[in-house]
């Protein structure tokens, strides 16, 4: 899952980015609205965490610019917590709203909730075949038995299960699993697919030659 954090306050952006990375998201960051809008328009993020009060271009303008072209979920982050500000944010097309100062746990929970809703899942636990994923607890189970996975393996499984019954291209996987600073080579994808197949069986992830990978629900 790839996230864009647009926040002008360095310390805050840093801690939000670090937290989301620890939650096994691929996180990109922008220090101002203009750069944020550019990134949001040019990459397919799973969610944009957007501050309102920013130099160059404020959150509302970024949101308006983004909504003209894309339906990327947006979580507004702001120091304004008057009801009218919240209403304005939601009416501008934001998916959720969080007032500063916030709890990191709440931020993560909301980010997950927004992404889940966009994927059509309302429950954090989804079962595909005999594999069950819990995005909140970040666990993968084969039947009843919990299986140890690394953060990257989990992220890939989550992505594939979210797009179950769809062919997921290697580019898509690469875009959503690695952030802009990641130096990983694209053949790292093959490693993660191999590891997941080792742990959950060969039939969990199928390869469509020349197209990509697919996880089938039945």
């Amino acid at each position: 899952m790839r996230v864009l954090v647009v926040e002008d306050q360095d310390d805050l952006r840093e801690v939000v980015v670090e937290t989301l990375r620890e939650e096994s998201f691929a996180v990109d960051e922008s220090a101002d609205g203009e750069e944020g809008l550019y990134k949001a328009l040019n990459w397919d993020y799973d969610i944009v965490v957007l501050d309102v009060m920013m130099p160059v271009m404020n959150g509302w303008e970024v949101l308006d610019g983004l909504r003209k072209e894309k339906q990327t979920p947006v979580l507004m982050l702001t120091a304004l917590d008057q009801v009218c500000d919240k209403v304005k944010g939601l009416n501008h097309g934001a998916d959720d709203y969080l007032a500063k100062p916030f709890d990191l746990t709440e931020l993560v929970a909301r980010v997950r909730a927004v992404m889940r809703r966009k994927g059509g899942d309302h429950c954090p636990e989804v079962t595909v075949g005999n594999v069950t994923i819990n995005t909140t607890a970040k666990t993968l189970r084969l039947g009843d038995k919990e299986v140890e996975v690394t953060a990257r393996e989990f992220a890939m499984a989550e992505l594939l299960i979210k797009h179950r019954d769809e062919v997921v291209t290697r580019d898509f996987l690469y875009d959503h699993l690695f952030d802009e600073n990641d130096e990983s080579m694209s053949n790292m994808l093959d490693v993660y697919v191999y590891k997941l197949r080792q742990k959950f069986g060969k039939s969990f992830i199928k390869t469509r030659r020349g197209q990509g990978y697919i996880v089938e629900s039945s």
């Binding site: 306050q9 310390d11 805050l12 801690v15 937290t19 916030f102 709890d103 990191l104 746990t105």
Partner: peptide, 12 residues
């Protein structure tokens, strides 16, 4: 709000 948010989230 912003500095409080920084302190709160950084310490959390």
């Amino acid at each position: 709000r912003t500095p409080i948010a920084v302190i709160l989230s950084k310490s959390q």
